[in-house]
Design a binder for these strands. Structure first.
Lengths: 128, 128
DNA sequence: CTGAATCCCGGCGGATACTG
DNA sequence: CAGTATCCGCCGGGATTCAG
């Protein structure tokens, strides 16, 4: 069925046993695709990177840090990140209003993954 | 060569100190975004998963394995994967024609990265 | 069998203006 | 300050047809 070389289907550890089901090639692709969808937005990665390291940023901080993004998109992407559980949103009932954004634990856990992606991409040159 | 950070959150905020230095927060986001673009196509992951483990597949194999994809998209995504250096394309000058697709070494190296992404996504359950 | 070419459509994302 | 509301262009991607 599966010829496991360094196959993704072989998950070394850490997957829930209650399902009793490892990822097949198809569900694996689907699962990764779902994960990628969470990151698919045009600005999500830039936002995430701004938030990495437990940094808490305000809306205007993000606007300043990512000048090319419009308010609409920034708000939209933040909402989606919040809905998807990567970002935590804290509203301070003040005048003027103030909203803080921070990564959830799960969002923080994405950090080493993106780092791995970074290292993978860096190895592009050596192609035969 | 690349300094292997365990944590992207430790990246410096300013510019890199020297040339061979690793990523800043900004260039890191850009680099990851570039990497994600390579995988961004609607069907690329499914194709990649079909190819993982050094499996060589023909065009018609992939069509059968991914029934939902149209010929156009399959061809398009394969071309892009080839152009981006993830997939190797071998044309056999025969009648009827036959084309084999396989991962490049670099493409294979993506496998553990997607695996990490898979494990990250699996840990979504508990959020506080 | 393996594509390229063409037509078509929904939605992402940009620009701008308005609000509490 | 931190967002909504609205309009709109572009392009990713589906269906179908043609070609080597």
């Amino acid at each position: 069925m599966t010829r496991t070389h360094e196959d993704v289907s072989r998950l070394p550890e850490g997957k829930p046993a209650d399902e009793g089901q490892a990822y097949t090639r198809e569900t694996g692709a689907v699962a990764v695709a779902q994960a990628l969808e969470l990151l698919g937005g045009r600005w999500k990665l830039e936002i995430l990177f701004q938030l990495f390291g437990g940094r808490v940023r305000r809306f205007s901080d993000l606007e300043r840090a990512i000048p090319a993004v419009s308010q609409k998109m920034l708000a939209q992407q933040l909402r989606q990140l919040e809905r998807d559980g990567l970002v935590h949103r804290v509203v301070h009932p003040q005048v003027p209003p103030r909203v803080d954004y921070a990564l959830t634990e799960w969002g923080q856990a994405l950090c080493p993954v993106l780092d791995a992606l970074l290292r993978w991409q860096a190895g592009r040159k050596v192609e035969r």
